[in-house]
Protein backbone atom coordinates (compact mmCIF):
# COMPACT_ATOMS: atom_id res chain seq x y z
CA UNK A 1 0.00 0.00 0.00
CA UNK A 2 2.79 2.39 0.85
CA UNK A 3 4.94 3.27 -2.11
CA UNK A 4 8.29 3.40 -0.37
CA UNK A 5 10.24 3.95 -3.55
CA UNK A 6 8.27 7.06 -4.50
CA UNK A 7 8.40 8.32 -0.95
CA UNK A 8 12.15 7.80 -0.68
CA UNK A 9 12.71 9.35 -4.10
CA UNK A 10 10.77 12.45 -3.14
CA UNK A 11 12.27 12.79 0.31
CA UNK A 12 15.76 12.55 -1.10
CA UNK A 13 15.42 15.24 -3.76
CA UNK A 14 15.19 18.75 -2.42
CA UNK A 15 13.08 19.92 -5.36
CA UNK A 16 10.32 17.41 -4.64
CA UNK A 17 10.60 18.08 -0.95
CA UNK A 18 10.20 21.81 -1.43
CA UNK A 19 7.22 21.36 -3.71
CA UNK A 20 5.45 18.96 -1.37
CA UNK A 21 6.26 21.03 1.68
CA UNK A 22 4.85 24.22 0.15
CA UNK A 23 1.71 22.54 -1.05
CA UNK A 24 1.35 20.90 2.36
CA UNK A 25 1.80 24.26 3.97
CA UNK A 26 -0.92 25.96 1.96
CA UNK A 27 -3.36 23.15 2.69
CA UNK A 28 -2.37 23.50 6.31
CA UNK A 29 -2.88 27.25 6.36
CA UNK A 30 -6.35 27.01 4.85
CA UNK A 31 -7.23 24.35 7.39
CA UNK A 32 -5.78 26.46 10.16
CA UNK A 33 -7.92 29.47 9.30
CA UNK A 34 -11.10 27.44 9.19
CA UNK A 35 -10.23 25.47 12.31
CA UNK A 36 -9.26 28.51 14.34
CA UNK A 37 -12.76 29.87 13.76
CA UNK A 38 -14.28 26.58 14.89
CA UNK A 39 -12.06 26.48 17.95
CA UNK A 40 -12.67 30.13 18.92
CA UNK A 41 -16.42 29.77 18.64
CA UNK A 42 -16.38 26.55 20.60
CA UNK A 43 -14.05 27.89 23.26
CA UNK A 44 -16.22 30.90 24.00
CA UNK A 45 -19.76 29.95 23.08
CA UNK A 46 -19.51 26.22 23.82
CA UNK A 47 -21.22 25.52 20.55
CA UNK A 48 -19.81 23.51 17.69
CA UNK A 49 -20.50 25.34 14.47
CA UNK A 50 -21.20 22.45 12.12
CA UNK A 51 -22.06 25.02 9.47
CA UNK A 52 -18.59 26.53 9.50
CA UNK A 53 -17.74 25.12 6.08
CA UNK A 54 -20.56 27.13 4.57
CA UNK A 55 -18.80 30.35 5.51
CA UNK A 56 -15.65 29.09 3.81
CA UNK A 57 -17.76 28.56 0.70
CA UNK A 58 -19.45 31.96 1.04
CA UNK A 59 -16.01 33.58 1.32
CA UNK A 60 -14.81 31.81 -1.80
CA UNK A 61 -17.82 32.72 -3.93
CA UNK A 62 -17.94 36.33 -2.73
CA UNK A 63 -14.25 36.67 -3.53
CA UNK A 64 -14.75 35.05 -6.94
CA UNK A 65 -17.51 37.43 -7.95
CA UNK A 66 -15.69 40.48 -6.63
CA UNK A 67 -12.58 39.47 -8.54
CA UNK A 68 -14.54 38.89 -11.73
CA UNK A 69 -16.18 42.29 -11.40
CA UNK A 70 -13.20 44.37 -10.29
CA UNK A 71 -10.08 42.39 -11.17
CA UNK A 72 -8.73 43.34 -7.76
CA UNK A 73 -7.85 40.28 -5.70
CA UNK A 74 -7.11 42.14 -2.48
CA UNK A 75 -10.54 43.70 -2.57
CA UNK A 76 -11.98 40.29 -3.40
CA UNK A 77 -10.34 38.71 -0.35
CA UNK A 78 -11.63 41.51 1.84
CA UNK A 79 -15.17 41.13 0.51
CA UNK A 80 -14.95 37.36 1.06
CA UNK A 81 -13.91 37.84 4.69
CA UNK A 82 -16.31 40.63 5.55
CA UNK A 83 -19.18 39.01 3.67
CA UNK A 84 -18.71 35.71 5.49
CA UNK A 85 -18.41 37.63 8.77
CA UNK A 86 -21.70 39.44 8.20
CA UNK A 87 -23.45 36.24 7.18
CA UNK A 88 -22.00 34.67 10.34
CA UNK A 89 -23.42 37.40 12.55
CA UNK A 90 -26.84 36.99 10.93
CA UNK A 91 -26.65 33.22 11.30
CA UNK A 92 -25.72 33.60 14.96
CA UNK A 93 -28.41 36.15 15.80
CA UNK A 94 -31.24 34.60 13.83
CA UNK A 95 -30.54 30.90 14.11
CA UNK A 96 -27.79 29.41 16.23
CA UNK A 97 -28.30 31.63 19.30
CA UNK A 98 -31.71 30.02 19.67
CA UNK A 99 -30.16 26.62 20.27
CA UNK A 100 -27.35 27.65 22.63
CA UNK A 101 -27.33 25.29 25.56
CA UNK A 102 -29.65 22.85 23.85
CA UNK A 103 -28.63 19.32 23.06
CA UNK A 104 -26.03 18.63 20.45
CA UNK A 105 -28.44 16.89 18.10
CA UNK A 106 -30.58 19.99 17.89
CA UNK A 107 -27.56 22.15 17.07
CA UNK A 108 -26.39 19.63 14.50
CA UNK A 109 -29.79 19.55 12.85
CA UNK A 110 -30.08 23.33 12.67
CA UNK A 111 -26.59 23.62 11.19
CA UNK A 112 -27.24 20.86 8.68
CA UNK A 113 -30.40 22.58 7.50
CA UNK A 114 -28.41 25.78 7.10
CA UNK A 115 -25.71 23.98 5.09
CA UNK A 116 -28.31 22.59 2.68
CA UNK A 117 -29.99 25.96 2.26
CA UNK A 118 -26.74 27.78 1.59
CA UNK A 119 -25.57 25.10 -0.86
CA UNK A 120 -28.82 25.49 -2.81
CA UNK A 121 -28.59 29.27 -2.72
CA UNK A 122 -25.12 29.01 -4.19
CA UNK A 123 -26.44 26.73 -6.93
CA UNK A 124 -29.19 29.23 -7.73
CA UNK A 125 -26.88 32.23 -7.79
CA UNK A 126 -23.64 30.81 -9.22
CA UNK A 127 -24.78 27.55 -10.81
CA UNK A 128 -23.93 23.96 -9.98
CA UNK A 129 -20.87 23.59 -12.20
CA UNK A 130 -17.27 24.07 -11.10
CA UNK A 131 -15.88 27.58 -11.24
CA UNK A 132 -12.22 28.50 -11.32
CA UNK A 133 -10.76 31.86 -10.48
CA UNK A 134 -7.18 31.05 -11.40
CA UNK A 135 -4.14 32.77 -9.99
CA UNK A 136 -5.06 36.47 -9.68
CA UNK A 137 -3.40 39.00 -11.95
CA UNK A 138 -1.49 40.50 -9.04
CA UNK A 139 0.34 37.21 -8.55
CA UNK A 140 1.01 36.15 -12.13
CA UNK A 141 4.75 36.40 -11.59
CA UNK A 142 7.45 33.86 -12.24
CA UNK A 143 7.68 31.33 -9.41
CA UNK A 144 10.46 31.69 -6.93
CA UNK A 145 13.12 29.02 -7.07
CA UNK A 146 14.06 27.56 -3.76
CA UNK A 147 16.46 24.64 -3.40
CA UNK A 148 15.48 23.35 -6.79
CA UNK A 149 11.76 23.55 -6.11
CA UNK A 150 9.24 26.09 -7.38
CA UNK A 151 7.25 28.28 -5.02
CA UNK A 152 4.47 30.34 -6.64
CA UNK A 153 4.36 33.88 -5.17
CA UNK A 154 0.68 33.46 -4.33
CA UNK A 155 1.55 30.59 -2.03
CA UNK A 156 3.89 32.84 -0.09
CA UNK A 157 1.16 35.44 0.17
CA UNK A 158 -1.31 32.84 1.39
CA UNK A 159 1.01 31.55 4.10
CA UNK A 160 1.97 35.07 5.17
CA UNK A 161 -1.64 36.21 5.47
CA UNK A 162 -2.64 33.10 7.39
CA UNK A 163 0.19 33.49 9.90
CA UNK A 164 -0.58 37.18 10.25
CA UNK A 165 -4.26 36.51 10.89
CA UNK A 166 -3.44 33.69 13.28
CA UNK A 167 -1.21 35.93 15.38
CA UNK A 168 -3.82 38.68 15.16
CA UNK A 169 -6.54 36.33 16.42
CA UNK A 170 -4.50 35.29 19.42
CA UNK A 171 -3.78 38.93 20.24
CA UNK A 172 -7.44 39.82 19.79
CA UNK A 173 -8.54 37.18 22.26
CA UNK A 174 -5.82 37.64 24.86
CA UNK A 175 -4.85 41.30 24.74
CA UNK A 176 -7.80 43.44 23.69
CA UNK A 177 -10.70 44.51 25.87
CA UNK A 178 -12.99 42.74 23.41
CA UNK A 179 -11.17 39.47 23.96
CA UNK A 180 -11.06 39.89 27.71
CA UNK A 181 -14.79 40.55 27.87
CA UNK A 182 -15.60 37.64 25.60
CA UNK A 183 -13.48 35.24 27.65
CA UNK A 184 -15.03 36.44 30.88
CA UNK A 185 -18.51 36.11 29.39
CA UNK A 186 -17.71 32.57 28.31
CA UNK A 187 -17.33 31.64 31.96
CA UNK A 188 -19.81 34.00 33.65
CA UNK A 189 -22.12 35.81 31.26
CA UNK A 190 -24.57 37.15 33.89
CA UNK A 191 -21.79 38.89 35.81
CA UNK A 192 -20.39 40.46 32.67
CA UNK A 193 -23.88 41.60 31.80
CA UNK A 194 -24.33 43.12 35.27
CA UNK A 195 -21.27 45.27 34.57
CA UNK A 196 -23.20 46.96 31.78
CA UNK A 197 -21.97 44.94 28.82
CA UNK A 198 -24.32 43.70 26.11
CA UNK A 199 -23.07 40.16 26.15
CA UNK A 200 -25.15 39.07 23.16
CA UNK A 201 -23.51 41.65 20.95
CA UNK A 202 -20.07 40.42 21.95
CA UNK A 203 -21.06 36.82 21.31
CA UNK A 204 -22.42 37.70 17.88
CA UNK A 205 -19.27 39.65 17.01
CA UNK A 206 -17.06 36.78 18.08
CA UNK A 207 -19.13 34.36 16.03
CA UNK A 208 -18.89 36.70 13.07
CA UNK A 209 -15.13 36.95 13.52
CA UNK A 210 -14.84 33.16 13.51
CA UNK A 211 -16.88 33.01 10.30
CA UNK A 212 -14.76 35.77 8.76
CA UNK A 213 -11.71 33.56 9.34
CA UNK A 214 -13.44 30.85 7.32
CA UNK A 215 -14.31 33.49 4.73
CA UNK A 216 -10.66 34.52 4.40
CA UNK A 217 -9.73 30.87 3.96
CA UNK A 218 -12.33 30.55 1.20
CA UNK A 219 -11.06 33.68 -0.51
CA UNK A 220 -7.47 32.43 -0.29
CA UNK A 221 -8.52 29.02 -1.59
CA UNK A 222 -10.44 30.41 -4.57
CA UNK A 223 -7.36 30.91 -6.76
CA UNK A 224 -5.93 27.46 -6.06
CA UNK A 225 -8.99 25.28 -5.77
CA UNK A 226 -12.14 25.01 -7.82
CA UNK A 227 -15.37 26.40 -6.46
CA UNK A 228 -18.39 24.19 -6.15
CA UNK A 229 -21.54 24.10 -4.06
CA UNK A 230 -20.76 21.72 -1.24
CA UNK A 231 -17.08 22.66 -1.14
CA UNK A 232 -17.53 23.50 2.54
CA UNK A 233 -18.10 19.94 3.65
CA UNK A 234 -14.64 18.52 3.01
CA UNK A 235 -12.85 21.35 4.73
CA UNK A 236 -15.32 21.19 7.61
CA UNK A 237 -14.48 17.59 8.36
CA UNK A 238 -10.76 18.23 8.08
CA UNK A 239 -10.94 21.33 10.24
CA UNK A 240 -12.72 19.30 12.92
CA UNK A 241 -9.86 16.82 12.82
CA UNK A 242 -7.46 19.74 13.19
CA UNK A 243 -9.46 21.11 16.11
CA UNK A 244 -9.48 17.78 17.88
CA UNK A 245 -5.77 17.16 17.33
CA UNK A 246 -4.80 20.69 18.31
CA UNK A 247 -7.11 20.84 21.30
CA UNK A 248 -10.53 22.45 21.42
CA UNK A 249 -10.19 26.15 22.11
CA UNK A 250 -6.48 26.45 21.34
CA UNK A 251 -5.46 28.58 18.36
CA UNK A 252 -1.75 27.63 18.59
CA UNK A 253 -2.90 24.02 18.78
CA UNK A 254 -4.94 24.46 15.61
CA UNK A 255 -1.87 25.92 13.91
CA UNK A 256 0.33 22.98 14.85
CA UNK A 257 -2.28 20.39 13.95
CA UNK A 258 -3.08 22.07 10.64
CA UNK A 259 0.56 21.95 9.58
CA UNK A 260 0.82 18.29 10.59
CA UNK A 261 -2.29 17.44 8.57
CA UNK A 262 -1.26 19.58 5.61
CA UNK A 263 2.09 17.85 5.39
CA UNK A 264 0.49 14.45 5.87
CA UNK A 265 -1.73 15.24 2.91
CA UNK A 266 0.99 16.44 0.56
CA UNK A 267 3.66 13.90 1.47
CA UNK A 268 0.97 11.22 1.60
CA UNK A 269 -0.16 12.00 -1.93
CA UNK A 270 3.27 10.85 -3.05
CA UNK A 271 3.87 7.97 -0.66
CA UNK A 272 0.46 6.55 0.18
CA UNK A 273 -2.09 8.21 -2.09
CA UNK A 274 -4.83 5.74 -1.20
CA UNK A 275 -4.46 6.17 2.52
CA UNK A 276 -4.24 9.95 2.95
CA UNK A 277 -7.61 10.33 4.63
CA UNK A 278 -7.00 7.20 6.66
CA UNK A 279 -3.69 8.58 7.86
CA UNK A 280 -5.33 11.79 9.02
CA UNK A 281 -7.94 9.91 11.03
CA UNK A 282 -5.24 7.64 12.40
CA UNK A 283 -3.31 10.64 13.71
CA UNK A 284 -6.49 11.91 15.30
CA UNK A 285 -7.16 8.55 16.93
CA UNK A 286 -3.61 8.41 18.31
CA UNK A 287 -3.91 11.89 19.75
CA UNK A 288 -7.25 11.04 21.32
CA UNK A 289 -5.77 7.93 22.91
CA UNK A 290 -2.61 9.47 24.28
CA UNK A 291 -3.68 13.09 24.79
CA UNK A 292 -7.46 13.35 24.87
CA UNK A 293 -7.45 17.12 25.33
CA UNK A 294 -5.45 17.55 22.12
CA UNK A 295 -1.85 18.62 21.67
CA UNK A 296 -2.21 22.09 23.18
CA UNK A 297 -5.79 22.03 24.45
CA UNK A 298 -7.14 22.70 27.91
CA UNK A 299 -10.79 22.56 27.05
CA UNK A 300 -11.53 26.24 26.52
CA UNK A 301 -9.91 29.42 25.25
CA UNK A 302 -7.58 30.74 27.89
Amino acid sequence: MIDFDALAACLSTSACLVNQATSGLIIGMLLFLVASGVTLIFGVLHVINFAHGSFYMIGAYFAYTTYVLTGNYFLAALVGAVGAGICGILFERLIISRVYGQNLLMQLLVCYAFILIVDDLVKIIWGAEYLAMGIPAEFRLPPLRFAGGFVPPFYLFLVGIAVFIGVGSVLLVTKTRFGKIVRAAALNAPMVSALGIRVNVYFALLFGFGCALAGVAGALAAPVRSLTPGMGLGILVESFIVTVIGGMGSIPGAFLAAIILGLTRSIGSVGFPLFVDGAMFMIMALVLIFRPTGLLGQGAVR
Binding site: R177, K180, I181, A184, N188, V192, G196
Partner: peptide, 18 residues
Protein backbone atom coordinates in the same frame (compact mmCIF):
# COMPACT_ATOMS: atom_id res chain seq x y z
CA UNK B 1 -18.10 37.88 44.61
CA UNK B 2 -17.80 36.31 41.19
CA UNK B 3 -14.45 37.70 40.19
CA UNK B 4 -13.30 36.51 36.78
CA UNK B 5 -10.94 33.92 38.21
CA UNK B 6 -8.90 33.30 35.07
CA UNK B 7 -8.27 37.00 34.45
CA UNK B 8 -5.72 39.22 36.13
CA UNK B 9 -6.83 41.76 38.72
CA UNK B 10 -6.30 44.56 36.24
CA UNK B 11 -8.27 42.78 33.52
CA UNK B 12 -11.16 42.36 35.95
CA UNK B 13 -11.10 46.11 36.48
CA UNK B 14 -10.87 46.86 32.77
CA UNK B 15 -13.90 44.69 32.05
CA UNK B 16 -15.88 46.76 34.54
CA UNK B 17 -14.81 50.06 33.01
CA UNK B 18 -17.55 52.27 31.62
Amino acid sequence: RQVFTMHSVEDNLLIGMK
